[in-house]
Amino acid sequence: MAELIAKSALAGHAPLTLAATTLAEAPMTQITAILPFPGGAKAVAAALRPFGLTFPDPNRQSVNGAMRLVWTGREQAFLVGPAAPEMAPGLAATLDGAAAVTDQSDGWAVLTLSGPLARETLARLVPLDLRDTAFAVGAVARSGLNHMQMILTRSDTATYEVMVFRSMARTAWHELAEALQTQAARLDAMS
């Protein structure tokens, strides 16, 4: 069988840094969707416990080291992280009958936006209150990036992770880059 090379949606795309704020593609990780069946919450919780994870509440994520379980919709969460490939097959077996488990790794593009202008840049495109009081570090939202479906995570004080459908990767990059350019130009004009 041919040896296939896994490539991210924006492979080879250089990061963009303006006014100390960087837009970049995140390193590729395994993404596994976990959708508990009705009545499956207990079994799912038991299966996740050995991995130090819990099924997250809406707008939240459960984190254990590099592994994250991110709430991505009604009765749906994504297991994200480098440790997931080894973990997911075992998990799929224990979750059999309690949840639907599917590999979503090649369906998504993951971008990171970090730096002092990250929030202002996102605010141009995202219809959410991104202030600390409403969107603290660790918060997750399934929302829109302009017209695109998006999963937004605040990874750190000035770092955000944007997940969009893989087919939208270049559009998302274009939108975010343009918004960042506008914000940087504005800062430049004021100084």
Partner: peptide
């Protein structure tokens, strides 16, 4: 939809 009994959110 009523939340499923013993379901996730």
């Amino acid at each position: 939809a009523a939340p499923a009994k013993g379901g996730a959110k």
